[in-house]
Design a protein around this nucleic acid. Sequence first.
DNA 1: CGGTACCTTGACCACTTTCAATTTGCGTGG
DNA 2: CCACGCAAATTGAAAGTGGTCAAGGTACCG
Lengths: 229, 229
Amino acid sequence: MQTTTQIPYKTSSHLAPVSQTQDRRSSRLDEVFRLQGHSLSVPAQRTIVSHGQAIENRYQVIAGFVRCCTFTEDGYRQIFRFAGPGDMLGYVDLERWHYTAEAVDKVALRALPNQILEIGLAEDAALRREMRAICAEELACRERQLTWLSYLPSEERLMAFLSEIEGRLPAQQGFAKLPMSRQDIGDHLGMSLETVSRAFGTLKRGGRIAMNGCSRFRIAAGERAAQAA
Amino acid sequence: MQTTTQIPYKTSSHLAPVSQTQDRRSSRLDEVFRLQGHSLSVPAQRTIVSHGQAIENRYQVIAGFVRCCTFTEDGYRQIFRFAGPGDMLGYVDLERWHYTAEAVDKVALRALPNQILEIGLAEDAALRREMRAICAEELACRERQLTWLSYLPSEERLMAFLSEIEGRLPAQQGFAKLPMSRQDIGDHLGMSLETVSRAFGTLKRGGRIAMNGCSRFRIAAGERAAQAA
DNA sequence: CGGTACCTTGACCACTTTCAATTTGCGTGG
DNA sequence: CCACGCAAATTGAAAGTGGTCAAGGTACCG
């Protein structure tokens, strides 16, 4: 490892998922959801499914963000992932939810009954392949997060997170709007809410991000190049 | 969160994988490997497959341990998992290895050509189900590690790791033998090799583990109960 | 326009890292 | 079989980073 100030942290090339995801525009799974799923809406902060529950439906997020997390016995919460529009919930699990899913803001979902998915999987090889790609991406997502937690200092961790999520957030006048709190971000990145707040401050003062209020941000042009490198 | 000294960390109940793994004794996948796989041996420290390579064979570990890891551009290594006897390598990936696999000690493997697996998956629903269970377990393994990194202090992290791996290590006179170095453990748990060493010392002095040389250990009886709680 | 929840900032403290110096353990060759 | 040498592990001291607790400040919603 080198000195913090000298060499920018790069997490991309080896951590970026080796391209094995399907073209989402022509997704069979999307099609199944559109044709056989039913829509529902969940208010902010409401629990969608709880860890350990039997899986009755698989979900696709249409709008809003969902936090996928677990709770330890001593009350600590670990957020694995923020699922946004287009993301699937419950695809890797077989019979029971292995995490709790909660709405961060107002969320629109499509639900697909279990049996329908299973019938589709039994019949359709393309659907099976797509399913495997989703598992691979889910795993890659955890591994990226794992690597952030292992060796990035707080500001770089936040920067990595913002870079990853920016393109998926609703944007106004070039600013992306974060729906989640500092506490949520902290529970995702393994740091306290105070440290998250300080990291925002440092990035802002360093000109690496611009902010508009505490939930709208934009990544500086030079910075975007550095992260993508 | 509470004070470190007061309440023992408990990572289990919510983090333990919700049982969706198959009975390994009657595994179809094992059968396929036995009938159609071929054996090979890899010396210690040798690379088995590299990140990004096209997948030609899937592997099953027969003996020894394999570290599954990636390297960042600034030379940092993140070990995701130590795969031991019975574990599968390359099951979640579709076309390319998303990690590098290296032999920790002398490793015996069985290799199964890609096409044979794909034919089996197309024909056999039980095999497909088993495959999904392996993906789910792989994901659960990353999530456990993620939670350790997020909030456990160094000694508890090491303790969690030792508890998880103890049963899978070769044992002599009640002592399990670790094949990997302090550096390897550190790269898995996100801590420096010195901190790993100090954590061993503290656990030993606290009577939570017993040691015989620097690579043989045994978890104290009381401690095992605490972890399993 | 006020209240409340969230965010920011400061001060202090604990833990981990880093760098460096020993010490230990183990395989090899004398 | 013992001694040597090297790699790995341990230990120490100093410095940095993030956590905790506590006190403001800000933004948003009714």
